[in-house]
Design a protein around this nucleic acid. Sequence first.
DNA 1: ATAGGGTTATCC
DNA 2: GGATAACCCTAT
Length: 314
Amino acid sequence: MGAPKQKWTAEEEFALKAGVAKHGSGNWRTILRDPEFSGILFLRSNVDLKDKWRNMRVTANGWGSREKARVALKKSRAILKHDDNPLSLSTEVESVDDELIDYKPPEISSEIVQITGSKRPVSKMEDLIIEAITCLKDPKGSNKTAIAIYIEDQHLTPPDFKRLLSVKLKEMTGEGKLIKVKRKYRMAPSPAMVEGRKLKASHLEVRQKETSKEDRDDKSIAKLQVDAELAWMRNMTAQEAAAAAAQAIAEAEKAMAEAEEATREAEAAEADAAAAQAFAEAAMLTLKNRNTTKLSECSMNKFIQIAQGHRYHL
DNA sequence: ATAGGGTTATCC
DNA sequence: GGATAACCCTAT
C-alpha cells in the first residue's frame, strides 16, 4: 500500500548529471535549490538525488548492480590494507566519477545566499500539496484546481503536473492524510492542531494593535495598496510570521512616511510606485535580517509575491 | 544534510 | 525468482 515507485525520466537524469557537474557530487541540496534544476527535479528530495546518482554510477560501470559494486569496493579496500600502494584504489574510484560525467569538484562560491525572485525549489509533491492546502486555508478544503493553481503559481511545474497532482491527491486521501469532501481536500486533523489554535488566538492581540495604527487618516492610493498587503499579513496564522510581519509593518510605515514626504514634490503616480516599492523593500529587508527559516512557508511565498508584484527583487 | 546499508516494488 | 531501480532507515 505504499506510494508507487516513480521512475526517473530522462530529463530528470540529465538534470541530475548537469547538477553534479555544476555543484559536485554530494551537494544534493545545492543542486535541488539551483533554479536551473529545481524546475525539473522539484519532485525529488536530496536523498532521492543521492540514491539516483548511486544507481547511475553503478550501472554506468562494468558492475551491473550495487551489490557487485559494493563487493568490488570491499575487495579493493581489503587489498588496500595489504597493498603498499594506496593509489591503486583512489585512481580507480575517481575514474568512476569521471566516466559518467564531466565531474567538477565543488568550488568555493562566494555567491551570497540568494532568494531570487524566481520560483523556489522544493522536494516533494506531497509537501507541495500540504503547503497549498495550508496556505489557501479554506475551512471546507480546496479543490484540485485551486491547489494546482496555487502550486503552479509558486513553483515551476512540468507539463504533466496536473496528472501527477491527481494521483498524489488520491493517494494521500487513501492514506488518510487528506480528507476529501465534495471534491475538496483538506488536511486530516492531527494532535498538533490543538497547539496551532492557541497560537492563532495569541496572534489576535497583535492584529488589533496593528489595526488601530492603520486607521490613521490617509487617502494616498499607495497607502491603500499597502493596506491591502497589511490585510494579508493580519491573516497569517503562524506565530513567527506574525512577529515578522509586525516588524515588517513598523519598517514599512517608516518607509511610508518618508515616501509621503517625497510625494509633495513628485508626481502622484510616481510617488505611489515609490511608496509601494519602499514597502516591499522594507518587508524584504526585515525578512532578510531575521531568521527566515523560522517563517512559515506561506508567509515567505507571500512576501516573495509582493516583492515580485512591485518588480522588486532581492 | 549526506552516506551507506537495508527494504520493497517492478520488470523479465 | 533473481536483478534492478526507487525508496526507507540510521549513524555520522
